[in-house]
């Protein structure tokens, strides 16, 4: 059975029921609209509006879901030895996200968050965290073009509070 998803720019995507169910948000909406896998009529007569997702982003989300639709539920390792939340990004996912410029990555992350697709959200979060990892504050500021609006006194105060974990 197929489910119809309608994006903010009125584009209709017809996706497999299993793919639709990968989104917690879509699952909830389907339940609310009494749409079930065994009731073709309910699926044909309804469509799920997704006002926070554009056509371009939805296409990427569906591409990711297509690849992962048969995955076993993953047990997330919440914290590694050093206390970080960790998520292993598979080679396919790395390749999938590799060519997205940062703006697109942010849009995709927003969509994954709105649609509640945990695996995709974790992939993107880990990818962005990896971009920050190991860089000093001035390198992070330079990389992301961040203008520091903290006074020297405030910086000193923050440094003092976090000094215990720094070199």
């Amino acid at each position: 059975p197929n489910v119809k998803l309608v994006t903010s720019d009125n584009e209709e995507f017809v996706v497999d029921f299993r793919i639709a169910k990968m989104s917690v948000t879509v699952s909830r909406l389907m339940e609310a609209m009494n749409m079930s896998e065994t009731d073709d009529a309910s699926l044909l007569s309804n469509s799920i509006p997704l006002p926070n997702v554009t056509k371009a982003v939805m296409a990427r989300v569906i591409e990711w879901c297509e690849k992962h639709k048969n995955d076993e539920p993953k047990e997330e390792k919440e914290n590694d030895k050093r206390g970080r939340t960790t998520h292993v990004v598979s080679d396919w996912d790395k390749e999938f996200l590799k060519n997205d410029e940062f703006g697109r990555l942010c849009q995709l992350m927003g969509a994954a968050n709105y649609l509640e697709i945990k695996g995709l959200f974790n992939d993107i979060s880990q990818t962005i965290a990896n971009m920050i990892h190991g860089k000093k504050s001035d390198e992070i500021a330079e990389m992301f073009n961040i203008h520091c609006d903290l006074t020297e006194a405030e910086k000193k105060e923050i440094r003092k509070k976090t000094a215990w974990c720094e070199d």
């Binding site: 206390g83 965290a129 920050i132 990892h133 190991g134 961040i146 609006d149 720094e166």
Partner: peptide
């Protein structure tokens, strides 16, 4: 939370936000 303690500290000092 995907960042380690030192990364978090370095990020915190980049700007108020």
């Amino acid at each position: 939370p995907y960042l380690g303690l030192i990364d978090r500290s370095n990020l915190a000092v980049t700007c108020r936000r």
